Simulated assay, not measured.
Amino acid sequence: MPSKLYIQGRLSIVAQAEVLLHTKAVLGEGPSWDEKNGLLIWVDIEGKVLHTYKPDSGEVTAKTLSQRIGAAVPRASGGVVLAMQDGFYAYDPTGDELTFLGNPAGRKEETRFNDGKCDAAGRFWAGTMSLHGKPEQGALYCLEKDLTIRTVIENVSCSNGLAWSPDNRTMYYIDSPTKKVMAYDYDLATGELSNGRTAIDVTIEGAVPDGMTCDAEGMIWVALWGGYGIYRWNPVTGELLLKVDVAANQSSSCCFGGDELTDLYITSARVGIAEADLAEQPHAGALCVYRSQVKGLPTYAFGG
């Protein structure tokens, strides 16, 4: 049963995620739910591995590719679309075929793609970051269904979580070092952003916001890298509603899946953790799950 705990001076609920798969990912990231195939997709960025998990059968696959993979989303026409180190690719797992789709014009050198997600219209949003930790080298891009690529936000240090409100009128975005979740007015018909403002200031010591998702009630669930968990906030009031404890300090991202969209799948990482410290958190890099009483929003497929 969830317990109560004061976090940042506020009374909040604390729940516990369970370890689902001991994957020991170097940098687990980017989970997405393929509703059509009942399949969870996620990546190990540094391991260059595309993972899948089928809850109904317990079947697990791991495919090592040629580049770092920042994010993977299902494609409406079949297969997946990947944001890789050198650009956007389509991947057909049945034929083990990787097809280059494009790379943003003007993209800075020595960067790689990081997190990404599709909006309800089928556009694929994904951003970049420096390979060497340099600030403001990245950007947020949008891969349109006609395969053109737009640069939307520049001078980003570590492009990360994306989410949309249930009515698709608000987009949430994280540039991790800012320790903020930004909100933008969103036009689903055009994919245009406006009126950027801070929705959440993350003031938890030692933690930065990473990946995120939104639920059917309009609340956002944010993975805190360095925070041992997922935090559920009201993005309108700023109220912290829930912490889901995860047995890995570097919780990296989350998405809802399962038949009822009530299973919150959580990725984590072990990159940068000394061997001695890994003995204290043996589940670092695992795939975890929290059985929520709140229904999530679906993962949208790329429509191109």
Score class of each variant (00 low, 15 high):
G95W: 07
W125P: 00
K108W: 11
M84R: 15
F100D: 09
T99I: 12
W125E: 00
T111I: 08
D115I: 04
D115R: 04
F113C: 05
D92Y: 10
K117R: 11
N114D: 09
A105K: 14
G106S: 13
C118W: 08
F100I: 09
T99P: 10
Q85P: 11
D92T: 07
D119T: 02
G102N: 02
A90Y: 07
K117A: 01
F113N: 02
E109K: 15
T94L: 11
G122C: 02
A90H: 12
G116R: 04
A121H: 06
K108S: 12
K108N: 14
Y91Q: 01
A121L: 01
L101R: 06
G102I: 06
Y89A: 07
P93E: 06
P104H: 07
G122Y: 01
R112W: 09
E109I: 12
F100Q: 09
G95S: 12
A105C: 10
D96A: 12
G95Q: 12
G102V: 03
L101N: 04
E97N: 14
G87F: 12
N103V: 13
L98R: 06
M84T: 14
G87I: 07
G106P: 11
W125T: 01
K117F: 04
G102Q: 07
P104C: 06
F113W: 07
N103M: 15
R112G: 06
D119Q: 03
T111K: 10
A105D: 15
T111W: 12
A105W: 08
E109P: 13
P93F: 08
G87H: 10
M84G: 14
Y91G: 03
R107E: 15
P93K: 01
T111D: 10
K108R: 15
A120K: 03
R112I: 09
N103S: 14
D96T: 10
K108P: 10
T94N: 14
T111S: 13
D92R: 08
L98S: 06
G102D: 10
P104A: 07
R107V: 15
R123P: 01
A121P: 03
W125N: 00
R123A: 09
N114I: 05
D115V: 04
W125Q: 00
T94Y: 13
G122F: 00
F88P: 03
Y89V: 02
L101W: 05
N103H: 13
M84S: 15
F113L: 05
D119F: 05
G116L: 10
F113V: 03
L98Y: 08
G122A: 02
G122I: 02
C118P: 04
T94F: 14
K117H: 03
T99E: 13
Y91V: 00
D96H: 12
R123S: 05
F113G: 02
T94W: 11
K117W: 02
E109G: 15
